[in-house]
Amino acid sequence: MKNKTLIIPAILFFFILFILFYLLLIDRKPSELPSVLINKKVPVFKAESLLNDNIFISEKEFKNELTIVNFFATWCKPCLDEHVYLKKLSIGENLKIIGINYKDDPKKAIKWLKELGNPYYDVLVDYDARIGIDWGVYGLPETFIINSKGIIKYRLVGPITEKNYNMFKLKIIEINQ
C-alpha cells in the first residue's frame, strides 16, 4: 500500500459529510414529496388493460370527472394494507380509480384482485415501469388525484392508511369543488 492512499478514507468521509450537511440545512420534508407534475396535465400514455383487451388512452380517460390513479404491485406489502381503503373509496364514495400495476407479474395481479376484490375502474399494465417513470413514481404505493380537467392536483406517497384516510377524502372533496 502506498502511504498516500491512506488519506483516501478521510477524503471520502469529508465528501459524504458535506452532502449530509447540505441535506440537513436545506429545507426538506422527506415524507412530503414535491411533484413537478402538480397542477400540470396528466402525462400522455397508452397502456394495455390487465382485465380486458382494450387499449387505454390517457387523453380520452382523464376528463369529465375526478379520477384517482393508484400505482400498486402484488410484491408491495403496504399496497395490501392500503387495498381496504381503496375499496372503501371505490364503493363508499363511488370514485373512478385507475390502478397501475407497476413492475408486476400480471397473473399474480389478476389473482390478487380476484381474491381481495377489485376497487379499480380499470387496471393498466406497467410491466417495464414506463408509465411510472413518466409520473415520477418514487416508491409504491403512490396515489394521485386528478381533477375533472385532467390536471394532477395531489400526490400521496405511501399507503392510504387509517390515519390519513379522512385527510385523503377531504382532499378529494376539496379538489372536486
Binding site: L6, I8, A10, F13
Partner: peptide
C-alpha cells in the same frame, strides 16, 4: 446538525490521524 457536527469531529480527527 448536532450529531453530524459531532461525527465530523470524530471522523475528521480519526481519519486524518489515520492518513
Amino acid at each position: 446538525i448536532y450529531i453530524l457536527a459531532f461525527i465530523a469531529l470524530l471522523g475528521g480527527y480519526s481519519l486524518l490521524l489515520y492518513g
